[in-house]
Amino acid sequence: MNIAILSVTNQGKEISDKLYDNLIQNPLFLNVKQYHKNIINTVNEIFDKYDCIIGIMASGIMIRSIAPHVNSKLSDPAVLLIDDNANFTISLLSGHFGGANDLTLKIAEILGSTPVITTSTDVNNKVGIDSIAKRFYCTLENPKNIKFINKALVNNTQVELCLHPKYSYILTDEVKKSYNTKISEEYQNITATVDNHKVILKPKQLVMGIGARKDISYDKVKNAIISACNILEFSPLRIDFFATADVKANEKGILENIKELNKELKIIPMDEIKAYQNEECSESDFVMKQFGVKGVCEPSALIANGTGSHLIFKKTAYNGVTIAVSLSD
């Protein structure tokens, strides 16, 4: 996720600095950039270039700045608003599919502020169908029907959520409390239905790239996979398949974990990794010295996921194991 932090006052800049220092340490945030003053011009330039815009300023300034650019809940970035004392962190735009509500909770925790979320499903302890789509990286079909599904949830009208067993990873306690769930192999996707209004969710492809030191243990690889998935807030079963370089193709610690998860491991030739160019990939001096490539887990995840894929979890080291996760276009 790419995040822009905007501030106006010196006090706001201090909050911006604190956020920046924290967010750049989080593997979910690939690019974090700060902007100070010139808010209207800045928003004009960046609105469509970031996944989230955090404004530290008065609400009037932020609302007037983003107003000309607001288009659709399915395409607008998440927009958060924070006051100059960091008393409140407010989800202002794209709470569900843009992820602003979930981000509001994370940012509020960092700053010790009060999160403010106003979407009806959330304040009524329901999980909107577009929130499920965002949290589990799904596309949405029939988005015009989202309002019927979410309105029914708020009104405590039964909404059926039908899914194939392979998608059972979406059934968190929150989701099971919100929907009447049905699991069967006859269902191909994830479908929410109420009064003939239907929304279909199709999970995008997620690939976890793995790099590891020689003779890495099963336990260390397992811990790395689980730790990364905990940050991503989903089960390892959400990963469609795994990838690594051919020099790691026979690492028992990796192979045993993939077998246990009943997933496929794609092997990427080192020559292909050497030739691969992508500005999202970071560089490791150790890997360059050992194998003559910048890294293993990030390029493996991206190459295996195909053209147009991008990282949603940058390279993170866990006791001899490196993990990165890519998402299909």
Results as ranks from 00 to 15, higher is better:
residue 116 V to H: 09
residue 82 I to L: 08
residue 224 A to E: 07
residue 34 Q to W: 00
residue 37 K to P: 01
residue 149 I to K: 03
residue 187 Y to S: 09
residue 23 L to C: 03
residue 121 T to A: 03
residue 236 P to V: 03
residue 44 N to M: 02
residue 139 T to Y: 03
residue 186 E to S: 13
residue 40 I to K: 15
residue 309 S to W: 05
residue 251 E to N: 07
residue 244 T to Q: 11
residue 315 K to E: 10
residue 210 I to P: 07
residue 144 K to H: 12
residue 118 T to P: 10
residue 192 A to K: 04
residue 251 E to W: 13
residue 228 A to S: 13
residue 294 K to H: 13
residue 38 N to S: 14
residue 174 E to Q: 13
residue 201 L to I: 07
residue 265 L to D: 06
residue 170 I to S: 06
residue 297 C to P: 01
residue 1 M to C: 04
residue 317 A to T: 08
residue 129 I to N: 02
residue 263 K to Y: 08
residue 56 I to M: 08
residue 22 N to A: 13
residue 168 S to K: 15
residue 92 L to K: 04
residue 13 K to P: 00
residue 59 S to V: 10
residue 101 N to L: 05
residue 190 I to S: 04
residue 166 K to L: 11
residue 251 E to P: 12
residue 147 K to E: 10
residue 261 L to Q: 05
residue 294 K to L: 09
residue 53 I to M: 08
residue 20 Y to S: 09
residue 112 G to K: 04
residue 196 N to M: 01
residue 222 K to P: 01
residue 310 H to R: 14
residue 126 K to L: 02
residue 172 T to A: 06
residue 183 I to M: 03
residue 155 N to H: 11
residue 11 Q to M: 06
residue 156 N to L: 02
residue 198 K to C: 02
residue 1 M to W: 05
residue 11 Q to S: 14
residue 164 H to T: 02
residue 54 I to M: 09
residue 120 S to M: 09
residue 253 G to R: 01
residue 112 G to N: 12
residue 246 D to G: 01
residue 21 D to N: 15
residue 144 K to W: 00
residue 191 T to M: 11
residue 235 S to N: 15
residue 219 D to Y: 14
residue 289 K to S: 13
residue 144 K to F: 05
residue 25 Q to N: 09
residue 219 D to A: 12
residue 324 A to V: 09
residue 36 H to K: 11
residue 318 Y to S: 02
residue 273 I to L: 09
residue 16 S to C: 13
residue 105 L to M: 07
residue 281 C to F: 06
residue 304 A to E: 03
residue 103 L to Q: 10
residue 76 D to T: 05
residue 189 N to P: 00
residue 156 N to A: 10
residue 49 K to M: 07
residue 87 N to I: 09
residue 127 V to A: 07
residue 31 N to A: 01
residue 26 N to Q: 02
residue 266 K to P: 00
residue 143 P to C: 10
residue 43 V to W: 11
residue 235 S to C: 05
residue 234 F to W: 00
residue 34 Q to T: 07
residue 40 I to R: 11
residue 165 P to W: 13
